[in-house]
Design a protein around this nucleic acid. Structure first.
Lengths: 342, 342
DNA sequence: TTGAAAGCGTTACCAG
DNA sequence: CTGGTAACGCTTTCAA
């Protein structure tokens, strides 16, 4: 016997559907006796209310749509973990979609979420996204959108992430103070703000220390492990390699590590790697990277909290929110004793 | 302006809602001219159909509910990746819920999914689950349920996973053939079938090789990193440690590694670790474990394929399906040259 | 205390 | 070709 509805209960009890509906939600104007009869039968017939029929009426779904580029990237699974923790506390549910870094999949996902009338959308933009018409649509729909990690500029949506440019500057500054001057960059996608900002911070820091930027040591790439592999191979073909490589993220670093292994380049003795990353991942990488540590779980929590504020109507000003970061020193650099990071 | 509905289009065009509905779905009995007018206006007003209103009528949601114990466990994120790949190809969407290994959260999640009238439920049972009334409810609801990785016996639902007992036997057999005879076990939860089966396989193998099972070397635990840490600490208090430890899964192994690091026990020189795990994770562990390799991405794909078959009404027989596994040898064992694994 | 009726956004059947 | 109407499962307002 499949799931039943209120009508079935009403018919069996010879009362109206309205009465059943009210009894089920323990309304004041239903007799205790009637309620008991309804509850007992509901229990017996395994009645489970229809979520969407209910919400159809209330115009509020308590659903939050999430779009991530890649769920097998542990960064995003930790973000989702944070999102779901906050969602669970507030009786919200998550519709998870994955763009696979494809702009058209992302667009499809957003349309699906809008069609499900989610109360809000949390989005980390795919690497490929260029066409921004879909963001116009979201704006028009008045569904609140909060970017996390990666954002598209120009639509005045709230974004939460880190100050990538500043963080990259600090990381490279640290590397320089460790005594290195030959520093390369395996970049992320230059279509994303974080890709550009991390590269710009890298260049800022080199310039600040009067170190020339060598084109052969700056490779445009992406945020996947495969991207890191390809980027390293490209840099290696450009001629002599730097002492330290700054990878756009930890996945990319892992790809570089793959390439070095394949090429027989020892790590970290020959080349050190530093990257943007997160602690949970870093703890299990070999040998430990030196990273700018972003906490993805907190990022997810914070993003969801902001979303809830948005839905409640508080905090309506669109802005960019930065999470704190810190440098986590791994075994990937030979650090002279007198370097400290405040 | 918020999202509009068909009525708005109908009113603006001075036609009936029925006409709009049919025009939008390109029905045969609507004039080309009418269709164009409707489409143009829909486009202009940013009309996006209401997913759940539509499905309310069709009695099919194209939604699949997923319950995982822990999404920050990379095993499950890879499973989800596989599930979503197949789902995307077939126009299904995923409602993801996380039980955090808690039986009551799991039950809540299942009820939510049933209330959303998902077309099917994919479930990896939490460690804690004992009360099986909720599974009765699912059975009653006639919503197809497919277990992946971890199952509860006795309800005759389809389950997909690996033959844990056999795999554990093979893994321990391999360790013995490497020359080790002092082998301990950091177990998973004995409430789960996989926890029991892996332990039983371990015992089978020891018995087969006439190696006594030492209680001090068999610790009951769980599948998280924290569990692994605690279990190792317990075993260490029991007296002298074995040469090789068989951990219930890779997270557990990681926790054991944490404990060893804290206690200053070198790895893998003093103690080797073997575990159930998956390649993607293993590649980034230091030093690489020797694992029985389960491919979680394929597991997810397969689980979703079975689910789709179920929904279509094919393949209605409930059974246990085993995925193939293989041993992946890492740096965690000192292996003598003449050992090979067929 | 209960029930009739309208409505949420959509589709489907049948008339015209 | 177009439209009225009932239906999907539920809630809410207003009468009785």
């Amino acid at each position: 016997m499949a799931l039943i509805n209120q009508s079935t209960i009403a018919k069996t009890l010879n009362v109206s559907r309205a009465t059943v509906s009210k009894a089920l939600k323990d309304a004041d104007d239903i007799s205790a006796e009637m309620k008991k009869r309804v509850w007992d039968l509901a229990e017996k017939l395994n009645y489970i209310p229809h979520y969407h029929a209910k919400r159809l009426h209330s115009q509020k779904t308590n659903l939050i749509g999430v779009v991530v580029p890649d769920i097998s990237n542990s960064f995003f699974s930790f973000v989702i973990d944070g999102i779901m923790d906050i969602a669970g506390q507030s009786d919200y549910h998550i519709i998870l979609t994955v763009s696979r870094e494809k702009a058209d999949t992302e667009e499809e996902n957003i349309l699906t979420l809008l069609s499900m009338r989610v109360d809000g959308i949390l989005l980390a933009v795919s690497e490929e996204t260029r066409d921004t018409r879909i963001f116009e649509k979201i704006k028009q729909s008045t569904v609140p959108l909060v970017y996390f990690d990666r954002a598209i500029e120009g639509f005045n949506f709230t974004a939460i992430g880190i100050d990538d440019r500043d963080a990259a500057r600090k990381l490279i500054d640290f590397v320089v103070r460790c005594g290195y001057r030959h520093i390369g960059h395996l970049g992320g996608s230059m279509l994303t703000d974080i890709g550009r900002n991390r590269r710009d911070g890298y260049i800022d820091a080199l310039k600040h220390h009067h170190i020339p930027v060598r084109d052969a040591w700056v490779v445009e790439g992406g945020f996947t492990r495969a991207d890191g592999y390809r980027s390293f191979m490209r840099m290696q073909q450009n001629g002599p390699l730097p002492e330290v490589i700054f990878a756009a993220n930890d996945q990319n670093a892992l790809g570089a590590y793959d390439a070095m292994k394949e090429l027989g380049i020892s790590f970290p003795e020959t080349i050190g790697i530093v990257a943007f990353g997160h602690h949970e991942f870093n703890r299990i990488i070999t040998p430990s990277l030196t990273i700018i540590n972003v906490n993805p779980y907190n990022l997810g929590k914070k993003a969801m909290e902001i979303m809830l504020g948005r839905i409640r109507g508080e905090d309506m000003c669109d802005k960019k929110i930065f999470l704190p970061v810190e440098i986590e020193i791994g075994e990937s650099l030979q650090i002279s004793e007198n370097v400290s990071f405040k």
